[in-house]
Amino acid sequence: MKWSRLSLILIRGFNVIGLLVAGYLFTKLMISSIDWEWLSSILIQLLKGFGLTVAIFGFTLLFSMPLGMALCNVRMSRLKILSWPAKLYISIMRGTPLMLQILIIFFGPYYVFQFFNLDISLSDAYRFPAVIIAFSLNYAAYFAEIYRAGIESIPIGQYEAANVLGYSRLQTFFKIILPQVIKRTLPPVTNEIITLTKDTSLAYAVACAEMFTIAKQLAASQSSMAPFVAAAVFYYIFNFVVAYVMERCERKLNYYQ
């Protein structure tokens, strides 16, 4: 147990070191000698974009996780008139590219306004909200399905025991079902969160100035791969932290089976 944990940490550590070394060598290949001033200016610009990346990440989780729960409840409704649209929504959100969804959310209003002959132009300030809306709507669909799998995996006996003891439906869900669902869905949710970190780069489609957008601009203006390599390192470190935190959460919930 201890050894496997230690080796896991070591392997993770080597991964980071390996990537850093690779990045260093790669950078060295791209340019004849390292210009530290130049490199640090790149890093600083990337870090500014990284703030926006983290913001997209955070806001998306904040909105999509509860939205997914609501969607999951509608999806699991016995009324076909409720469950069917939810099913269709999930199908569309999962079946089309996220980048396309971002573009539609961002440019869509423009065409709607035009249709109604309204003279409203899109402001730059809409880029970030559009990205958040698109990400939240998309991730809610995935989370809804993860929650559904979790809820359906809870034995019917749990509901029956709660029923006989007199718990209301809300109490049953929040006190008895949800905590068990959280434990069971933590691994797939972790997967989703890690994917989200990398997906934030799709925001470059609407020129939202997050890290990847900046890396791309820098790479073009500097004719160098270094910004991409540096961005990769940032993404990796961030996900390394995410995986570590989620692992801790899982271990914390391991007190029961």
Binding site: G157, Q158, E160, A161, I176, K183, Q257
Partner: peptide, 11 residues
């Protein structure tokens, strides 16, 4: 009611 499978709340 006492169930065959106990149905205690595991958490």
């Amino acid at each position: 009611l006492v169930f065959q499978n106990f149905n205690l709340f595991p958490h």
